[in-house]
């Protein structure tokens, strides 16, 4: 009887597992199909796309659409391709991620280890920043940028993203540091370390998982942002997303789908890369923050 019970358990296990895998497979296909379509068609000649099946593999593989998307396609008025805008995005994303992450870490450190009157209220207000829709910020932000004289520059965009991201980065770090033993800070105080030394000698070195989470979060949302980019940039500071839109929606001539697909994939590569490199830590860090916070 015991044996049959075990057998049933195993069988149910197998059946459930098969169902789970089937469901996962369906979802995976559902999500991967668009990428597949973009991939195969970005290597086809335009004629082949027009005449044929979107799902078919290319009969004749060509990388011409990729080269064109990268540095020949007409974007706005110049035939520069996406390359300069890719660089713009990098110049915007890197400082914005670094600054907002560092500030978030500092905020989290102060909010948990240097408590002061009204700190919970302040944190609640900062949390509120996470729920403010982009559109509401546009006009005040435009005024601020104009006032500071950095409207239309990359640094202006950096400022916008730092300010908007601060609510999230503070939330992440505050929850992470709330679980960090305060006695370590006390021990360091007795050891004679000052405010900043405690931060970068004791807390930061133990913040690996949450730094990864914050960097991925900030990188993807800043890199993928379109609205701020479209609203606050000039020609020479436009990020990749805006350029991609210009490429796709340019009204002159025929629609070069293969070039558009290649451009879209180019635009997605950095975020994909960040996920592949640090994705494992992302889930781990999110869990740590969630459980301990």
């Amino acid at each position: 009887m015991a044996a049959s019970a075990v057998e049933t358990a195993v069988r149910t296990g197998r059946l459930t597992r098969a169902l789970i895998y089937a469901a996962l497979l369906v979802f995976a296909v559902y999500y991967l199909l668009p990428l597949f379509v973009m991939m195969v068609n970005s290597f086809k000649e335009l004629d082949e796309i027009r005449g044929g099946n979107m799902l078919a593999l290319p009969e004749l593989v060509t990388i011409a659409p990729w080269i064109k998307a990268w540095n020949q396609a007409q974007i706005g008025v110049q035939p520069t391709g996406l390359a300069p805008y890719f660089l713009n995005s990098i110049k915007m994303v890197v400082p914005a991620v670094v600054i907002s992450t560092l500030l978030g870490a500092l905020n989290g450190y102060v909010l948990t280890k240097w408590r002061f009157r009204g700190d919970t209220l302040l944190f609640a207000l900062m949390l509120f920043a996470c729920f403010i829709p982009f559109q509401i910020v546009l006009i005040p932000m435009a005024r601020v940028l104009g006032f500071l004289g950095i409207a239309g520059t990359t640094w202006g965009l950096v400022l916008v993203h730092v300010v908007y991201g601060l609510g999230f980065t503070t939330l992440f770090f505050r929850n992470y540091y709330a679980a960090f033993p305060t006695e370590l800070v006390k021990a360091a105080q007795i050891d004679g370390a000052n405010f900043l030394q405690i931060f970068y000698r004791i807390l930061l070195p133990s913040s690996g998982p949450i730094i990864v989470v914050t960097v991925i979060w900030q990188f993807t949302s800043i890199w993928n942002d379109f609205l701020f980019g479209a609203s606050f940039s000039d020609f020479d500071s436009q990020p990749m997303t805006v350029a991609l839109n210009n490429l796709v929606s340019s009204s002159t001539g025929v629609k070069e789908y293969n070039v558009h697909f290649a451009g879209a994939i180019l635009a997605a590569i950095p975020t994909l890369l960040v996920y592949v490199v640090a994705g494992r830590y992302f889930v781990r860090g999110l869990m740590a923050g969630a459980v301990k916070g």
Binding site: P181, L184, A193, P205
Partner: peptide
């Protein structure tokens, strides 16, 4: 007076060792 100015050394009930430093560094940090 700030703890570092009181010239005291303390052993914490919970040890409070710095997790990112090895034993030698923990001892020499102060």
């Amino acid at each position: 007076l700030h703890p570092s100015k009181r010239d005291i050394a303390m052993v914490f009930q919970s040890y409070a060792l710095y997790p990112n430093m090895n034993v030698a560094k923990n001892m020499s940090f102060g």
